[in-house]
């Protein structure tokens, strides 16, 4: 098991290397730069600034400098927020994103699995159809539509909840961003759960459980659901990584100072180091959560053994 984890972590190194390389060059080939402001800097000033940040060096040299610094954990200073290093900025923003993401994940998983199971048990009944129509809408409506619509209804028309910002971090401020972030994922989980639950309910060992007079509760929860959760778990990894590293759209709409918003601002400002930092963060989260999911998989399914 420990060997399995170590092996997986080791194999993450080349993955991250590829991610860093691709995003480094993509970023650099995008037009503009961090210091191309609306009012251009004087040529002399520009030259000085470029020199300070090492941008006057050949690209390959900058790439290797970045790579070796990053390998030591130094992600450099932000080009735009000049008093902060990238690590400081992300360190400040990450807790907001994680809190928001955790709540959204909870809403998505609990709600999705529950609704999906109910739909599966009522397969092809009206409850099933209603839930799945709603879920399809949930999957297809993007969160940049979902967010403003929720705000319009609950903040502006009904005035029940604040329209944006983190505020004091209390529950009231969280509701709308959590819902905008979580509902589309809830819909995905509901559809996934329904599908795998229907499949699980038709397996031979469920027939056995019923043939042995086990109560419906045991048949559904103990026997059908555990098997049905395996495909759902597979989606949990990338989903958790995406939610916890902050949603660019939702954080921007609700003015939440999380990682996602820095990513957007960094991209717009060509803040090379900040964008690279967030990209690496997301890559690390994706790898980490997929690893966690694989470990959980091994615990849930005895046929999968990590050795």
């Amino acid at each position: 098991m420990i060997q399995f984890v170590l092996r997986r972590l080791l194999s993450a190194v080349p993955t991250i290397f590829v991610v860093v390389t691709i995003s480094f060059f993509m970023m650099r080939f995008a037009p503009g730069g961090p210091f191309n402001l609306e009012r251009p800097l004087a040529p002399q000033t520009m030259a000085n600034v470029m020199k300070t940040y090492g941008l006057d060096q050949p690209l390959w040299k900058q790439y290797f400098t970045y790579l070796s610094n990053a390998a030591m954990g130094d992600f450099g200073p932000s080009f735009v927020y000049k008093d902060n290093t990238v690590a400081e900025l992300i360190g400040k923003a990450l807790p907001y994103s994680i809190e928001l993401g955790l709540w959204a994940l909870l809403v998505a998983v609990v709600g999705g699995v529950l609704l999906g199971t109910i739909a599966a048990l009522r397969q092809n009944g009206w409850i099933d159809y209603t839930l799945m129509v709603i879920a399809t809408i949930g999957v297809t409506v993007p969160n940049f539509v979902m967010g403003p619509v929720l705000t319009l209804i609950f903040a502006i028309m009904l005035s029940w909840l604040p329209a944006g910002s983190w505020g004091d971090g209390s529950f009231r401020f969280l509701v709308l961003p959590v819902l905008s972030l979580g509902l589309p994922q809830l819909a995905v989980f509901a559809r996934l759960t329904r599908g795998s639950m229907i499949e699980a309910l038709h397996t031979d060992h469920i027939r056995t459980a019923r043939a042995y007079g086990l109560p419906p509760r045991v048949v559904v929860i103990t026997h059908a659901m555990r098997g049905a959760m395996l495909p759902v778990l597979t989606y949990l990894g990338p989903c958790a990584a995406a939610l916890l590293t902050g949603s660019a759209v939702v954080e921007t709409i609700f003015a939440i100072p999380g990682v996602g918003r820095y990513f957007v601002l960094g991209s717009l400002n060509r803040d090379y180091t900040l964008v690279m930092g967030t990209v690496i963060l997301i890559a690390v989260f994706v790898i980490l959560f997929n690893l966690i999911v694989d470990i959980l998989y091994g615990l849930l399914d005895p046929r999968v053994r990590h050795d």
Partner: peptide
């Protein structure tokens, strides 16, 4: 179901063709 579940697995039991899939793998 109450009556059936009193009989199934207790008075009348069944075994099936596929012993692999008839048992819960988990």
């Amino acid at each position: 179901l109450r009556v059936l579940n009193g009989v199934r697995g207790s008075k009348i039991t069944m075994i099936f063709q596929e012993p692999m899939t008839s048992l819960d793998p988990l």
